[in-house]
Design a protein around this nucleic acid. Structure first.
Lengths: 202, 202
DNA sequence: GTCTATATGGCGATAGAC
DNA sequence: GTCTATCGCCATATAGAC
């Protein structure tokens, strides 16, 4: 299936990405990855020694896709209100198009938090600097919420949970696929107002 | 390990609960459940014919623990503001004490949404009535947010995501276990104000 | 590099003694 | 009811021909 990318190695990685994203580490089968790459199992082990190895490549890419964007926005020199608008407008769309990524990341973190920690530092993401900067600018802007960390987590919660909890939401609200999409679409408009209102002094 | 409950059947179910909650369905091992119940594998199959069967008992209990409380509050005859305060104060504490439950539920929903749907209807939870009622009362109270569903999902997102995303939060903020607990504790106070502010007309 | 065939091990499940 | 022993399957991984 799908012979698009040039080299076999790339094709394997693309296939692995799809399968791991769908099934997580435990659920993924080397056979399924091989099928989807249009080759056989033995060749997987020729390029990537084992399953763990193959998984690592997939994880790193997803992790960066998910975090680079939000940290870039948080660290930029615009007002908090602009940051909030920007995060919701770009982030939710990205999550919607790659809805498997957050679930995949959460799964991986639950499986091996320590290993993932190493991976994060080694991939050059340094949240501490950004947080320091953010804290300062929030003080200057007299944001109501006292703790910048709570605010960040609120924003991420509101963005990510509905994507990760899609099956739950579809279930309790009896949503079709299209209705669910409209529901998420509506959030892009409503959430910035929701949060900006929440942190504005009365 | 842990021979507390009286009958073997109960001990098995308790052990299964712990292991499934930790590892999910795929990750759980019958051997591990047997060890934790202080018996051997064969006896598991004597009481519960197979793994799926054992899982179902565990799932149903967790699902009810998670949903009964929130639906009860949402359906009660108090103002929206009181509902919000009540949900955050009781719900987050309950999630904190049973932090494995939401992760377990999400996992199960991703694995088999259809089966879970049946289970839900058969266990007597009828969200539709509650939603109708909620919609009406929100209109009467002139809540800003136009869609009650968005508001519910916002509340659940803010409550559940930080619990499910615990490993992530500990990682990016470099939290110890105690610091994480304080972080969640602080949310109980801050979130009601956050949400009530967000939906209050300017 | 890519394949077929096979080794190796783990897991859910069953048989059968006590 | 509870155990030991074992079956049967499936998944990862390797050997070795081409």
């Amino acid at each position: 299936m799908a012979k698009s990318p040039a080299t076999t190695e790339q094709r394997i990685l693309e296939a692995a990405k799809r399968v791991f994203h769908r099934k997580g580490f435990e659920g993924a089968r080397m056979q399924e990855i091989a099928d989807e790459a249009g080759i056989n199992k033995a060749l997987l082990h020729y390029y990537y020694r084992n399953k763990e190895n193959l998984f690592n490549g997939v994880f790193r890419e997803a992790f960066q896709a998910l975090f680079q964007r939000i940290f870039t926005v948080l660290g930029s020199d615009i007002s908090m209100e602009e940051k909030i608008r920007m995060i919701f407008s770009t982030y939710i769309g990205m999550l919607q198009e790659n809805s498997y990524i957050p679930w995949f990341i959460l799964n991986s973190l639950h499986r091996e938090p320590e290993k993932i920690a190493e991976m994060m530092t080694s991939s050059g993401i340094a949240p501490d600097d950004i947080f320091r900067k953010l804290k300062k600018s929030m003080k200057k802007e007299k944001i109501k919420d006292p703790d910048y960390r709570q605010l960040i987590i609120n924003i991420i919660s509101l963005s990510v949970f509905p994507i990760v909890g899609k099956p739950l939401i579809k279930l309790v609200f009896n949503f079709s696929e299209a209705e669910f999409d409209r529901f998420i679409e509506a959030r892009k408009k409503e959430l910035p107002e929701f949060v900006i209102n929440a942190i504005r002094k009365k």
